[in-house]
Design a binder for these strands. Structure first.
Lengths: 346, 346
DNA sequence: ACCGTTCCTGTTAGCGTTATCGCGAAAGGG
DNA sequence: CCCTTTCGCGATAACGCTAACAGGAACGGT
């Protein structure tokens, strides 16, 4: 034993283990374990002695050993697409914050590609690190296939996913957001509303299109063919030019704020004033939106709330609730700024 | 044994362990372990039999057991401030990508506050999950104190940190970026350059101020008092108004792109044209910058490169290189767009 | 006085993996 | 042909912790 030759415990080389603490406190290893896990089951005086020894030796439990015997690791996995994007980054951030409060650590696996294989691989990487559960942030249609073929014994929930998948889902109600944005524009007096949407296989993009189309149809307005961008300002700019060239366009609902930025620029370049000639609404409410020119009317998504919901759904799942909630929707808010107004007819 | 009553191995309830594979392949557990860790030390034929059994049973090693005996977990920790910010998010993303290629998983600990205690707590959380090493992303002066009081036996590197700390550092050369931005403005013919900087205790903010001031002093120009914002568009807007009110201001170097956005808006609101009346340079090159109005001249930081460097520094550290590199700087690039030009004197 | 009960602590036996040593067989060297 | 060396594999003993049981002491009710 190294402890013997240490002659006390001062210049310890090897980190202290349970046995060292037990020896110093004059109790069994089991009692030390109990002090750490179920303190109320140990006499106050003994507990104090053990805790003193813990502090003296600077003892910290070995998570691997604990995990080996309990079967739980206290680690959650998050499989996510590009965490550089505002939405996923915010969601991840909030998942971590929430998880921490409940004593969980979060491990991540970012995806470069997005398909069944990459998702399986991401889940697998985390699983082989023995995570207790996994949250998947992959808002793509193509991800659904991955979500249907998960290891059956691993608790999983998804953020932003379609309707017909076998895991619980937390997400912002995209339809509701699109409905609010579109109604807002109609209520200002616009004949109809054009749409610049996100890429075809994004769940969010589809939801927003549905909501937008639904309102127009319900109100009996003409439904222009939606344009599809790739979320980037560049694509918004390109598509914005097409819309700017059409004088009948007076209101545009854009799928996210970054593309809306591109649209704003395209309008300006084409000499169409916002909001006098054309009204523009975005989606997301990124921190920059309020400082666009003009400040952007947009739909705010509470990603923090989504993260919280996802975590709690997962917690239910890990507790074994097979019949828990299957879907938690977060209501988005319309933030009206200066990029929308009553159309001014010549 | 559950295996016995399983009657084969088809409807397994309990996940397979090493012993199950060994039994099926007709070898000892140790041989299976060798096939997985040092395949070349096993006869090809035996190896094939074992691998077949591994596939048949869908065996995956238990990381906790492995870790318990080897002492290594294959997990890296990243302690970071708000990973919603573009810089930290990008860095984190790239650390994860790089780490994955070397077989490491990444666990995260975001900080809400930033001081010695919060950093120690973050490092501690990860450490108690037995990470093999930690990367700290905390670009604050106040973090330095935390960096000086780390557990001595844990490999740690930092991203964005001051000069006098005892761990290796990877970062963008902020001074160099500021120097390029300032020289660019002077070369266009501006008398001097104003500065809107980040919060006082941010390392990056200090570096940018130093670079900016250094150029002005070297060129014998007057050095205006720098203004300090908080990185947000809002603060850039407020400070931009002050600058817009001063007709002698013709060039502004702003500490990040978001504040630059606010400055652009303030200038416009005050009737000062960019770049005809005032030139503006930002820092970061966030994806939106090219679509600001006007498109923003800015300094691009390659966060991906920073992430890569940080990981490799940590790898050296974990290999035991006490005397490895201590500082890796990444050169930033000036991206000239349309927010800068020759001052037009009346 | 006796018999549950409750409280507190210890003993034993793993959890699933790899380090280490050992042994027989095959291979190389004189 | 004998003596080393290498190769391929197995037996055993940890790694550090907790589940499960066991047992003694103290307590209260009959």
């Amino acid at each position: 034993m190294a402890t013997a030759s240490d002659g006390g415990a001062r210049p310890r080389s090897r980190p202290a283990v349970l046995g060292d603490v037990a020896a110093l406190a004059g109790v069994s290893a089991m009692t030390v374990s109990r002090v750490l896990n179920t303190p109320h089951r140990v006499r106050a005086e003994t507990r104090a002695r053990v805790l003193a020894a813990v502090r003296e030796l600077d003892y910290w439990p070995n998570s691997a050993a604990r995990q080996l015997v309990t079967g739980r690791s206290g680690v959650l996995g998050v499989v996510s697409i590009d965490t550089t994007l505002y939405g996923p980054a915010s969601t991840l951030y909030c998942i971590e914050q929430t998880a921490r409060l409940s004593g969980y650590t979060v491990s991540i696996a970012s995806l470069s590609a997005l398909n069944r294989r990459s998702i399986e691989e991401g889940v697998h990487r985390l699983r082989s690190q023995s995570v207790d559960g996994v949250i998947i942030v992959a808002p793509h249609e193509s991800a659904a296939d991955g979500l249907r073929h998960l290891p059956p014994d691993l608790p999983v929930v998804a953020v932003d996913a379609g309707e017909d998948i076998p895991v619980p889902v937390a997400m912002v109600d995209q339809r509701a957001g699109a409905i609010r944005a579109t109604r807002h524009l109609l209520s200002l007096g616009h004949e109809t509303v054009w749409h610049v949407g996100g890429p075809a296989d994004w769940i969010d993009a589809s939801g927003r299109i549905e909501g937008w189309r639904g309102v127009l149809e319900a109100e009996g307005r003409s439904v222009p063919e939606p344009l599809r961008g790739d979320w980037s300002p560049r694509s918004g700019h390109q598509l914005g030019r097409r819309l700017a060239a059409d004088p009948s366009v007076t209101a545009v609902f854009v799928g996210n704020d970054q593309m809306a930025l591109g649209v704003l620029r395209a309008m300006r370049e084409s000499g169409r004033r916002v909001p006098e000639d054309v009204s523009v609404v975005g989606f997301d409410d990124i921190p920059e939106s309020a400082y666009f020119w003009p400040p952007l009317t947009t739909v705010r998504q509470d990603f923090r709330e989504v993260g919280r919901h996802a975590f709690h759904l997962l917690l239910d799942r890990m507790a074994g609730d097979e019949e828990g909630e299957r879907r938690r929707l977060v209501e988005p808010d319309l933030v009206v700024r200066e990029s929308t107004g009553t159309p001014q007819r010549p």
